[in-house]
Amino acid sequence: MAVKVVDRSPLNFWEKTYMPQVLGGLKITLDNMLRPKVTLQYPEERPTIPDNYRGVPTLVRDPNGREKCVSCQLCEFVCPPKAIRITPGDIDDSDENAHVEKRPKDFEINMLRCIYCGMCQEVCPEEAIFLQDIYSVSGYSREELVYHKAKLYELGGTLPDQHYKWDRKKEAEEKVAAGGHH
């Protein structure tokens, strides 16, 4: 490591009184006072949320309205504060999404526990959970802040899908069913 020699020459009389420093400080604060304010007047003004912002984790549907979560519980497993709790369930054969076989019976995220780390989003193999732009969470009780499946889907809405993995699977099945053996 290079040695940096710091100038330690003795202070002159004027410097010893500290007045230049005091006056310099006063000038800095005065300048600051005249500068425009940086405060964001929160309820009226809202910050612009960047695309990669990690807000409240939400569940999303694909453009066809299918709930994307298949309750693989990887997010529950990876969640560092154990905020997620999933009750898995199967999809009834009469359901139009029967080919997906599995979906959460209930999906709870405890917003009081969530640390917004985004690991659930990262780990999700179905791209079903996203930390979107919601940053203001409030409630009157602890129970209220445990978000259940309906609330999570309401918050999440619909996001574009790049794969349509399950739709393509259904198509293949239908094609086989129509074409005989394969």
Binding site: T29, N32, M33, R35, K37, V38, T39, Q41
Partner: peptide
């Protein structure tokens, strides 16, 4: 007020 102004607040 002075405190806020000096600190860039309102």
């Amino acid at each position: 007020k002075v405190a806020s102004w000096i600190q860039g607040r309102v």
